[in-house]
Amino acid sequence: MTDPSQGAGDALRREAARWFARMRGPGAERWRAEFDVWFAVPEHRAAYNRASEVFGLGKLLRDEGGFVELPRRAFARNVVAGTAAAGLLGAGGWLALAGRGRQDGIVATRRGEIRAVVLADGSTATLDTETRLALQIGAERRVTLVHGRARFVVAPDPRRFVVTAGTSTVVAHGTVFDVTREAGGTAVALLEGRVEVADAGTVLPLAPGEGIRREASGGLVRERAASRDAEWPAGIAVFETARLAEVIGTANRYGPETLVLSGPGLADLKVSGRFRVNDPRLLAPRLARMFGLRVEAEHGVIRLARA
């Protein structure tokens, strides 16, 4: 007998994949208003984030040392194929990979690299640029975020899944969440499922869409998780009335070219939109068109100046 909820789930995954494809296409802005209404529904948001994660994961290329690595340029280009992969995983693919034994070691990315790694238990860790993880998977599944940002999709397994970043410890329960550790402090953002964050003797549960930030000053701030970061595994960021300098600073985390603003007042121009920030050769001309600037590229520097 067919489970009606399974059919509804498949339909939602297909719908999320269609939206993901639209919002990555050249006509994304004409869909923006309709997408914002659709994305505001928590179930839709969770499905969209899952489609984003599947896109970042792409095709599982090879299994080496208990996990699969995907180079930055090997991301899947076909969202429909990614949706089929999601269906396979949702139908038990995670469980088939779970319980595969121990895994110890370091996983790291270089500047400009985003890489998805499938761990020995079937969980996925997507590492942002210049990120370093220490893995200890045995009786307990434990990951230490040394620095950078990572997204975790936790596979079902009787063992606890624990991520440590600085003074913060995250205990996950079959969920999707981001953890960031940088000079400004640490942060946890929950996209789907349930986690508890322990920090300085305080244990705080998070609901989807919530986050916690430990600032460099030591303060612990509870906040709404920024939806602008939902697509970072695909190298995409969303800005709302942000300073142009902030957009440039985000892009310069990826390199290899460096974006530079040349001229008074450019840094404070306000920017709203969805941008691929990990490819400066695509980003620079788009920003130039928005503000009537000219682009000058020389010796690894891309300069935006007034025309």
Rank of each mutant, 00 (worst) to 15 (best):
A245Q: 10
A21K: 11
A116K: 04
E43M: 06
G138Y: 07
R159T: 01
V79N: 10
A284F: 02
E29L: 08
I106P: 01
W232S: 04
I248T: 07
T258I: 09
G148P: 02
V271C: 02
K270H: 10
F67Y: 15
E113M: 04
N78K: 09
R160T: 13
G25N: 05
R32A: 13
R50W: 10
V54Y: 12
W19P: 04
R100F: 04
G255P: 07
A40N: 08
R151P: 01
I212H: 08
G92E: 09
L293Q: 00
P256S: 11
A284P: 04
T164L: 03
G82P: 06
K59V: 15
L287G: 02
L135N: 00
R213A: 08
S262F: 09
R243E: 12
A234C: 11
T131S: 15
A150G: 07
K59D: 14
V107N: 01
T175R: 07
V117F: 10
G249C: 03
G66Y: 07
T144Y: 09
E130D: 15
L61H: 15
H299L: 11
V195W: 03
D104G: 12
F161I: 05
D229A: 11
A187T: 04
M23N: 02
F275D: 02
A307P: 15
R110V: 08
V117W: 08
A237R: 15
E113P: 03
P4H: 08
A288G: 01
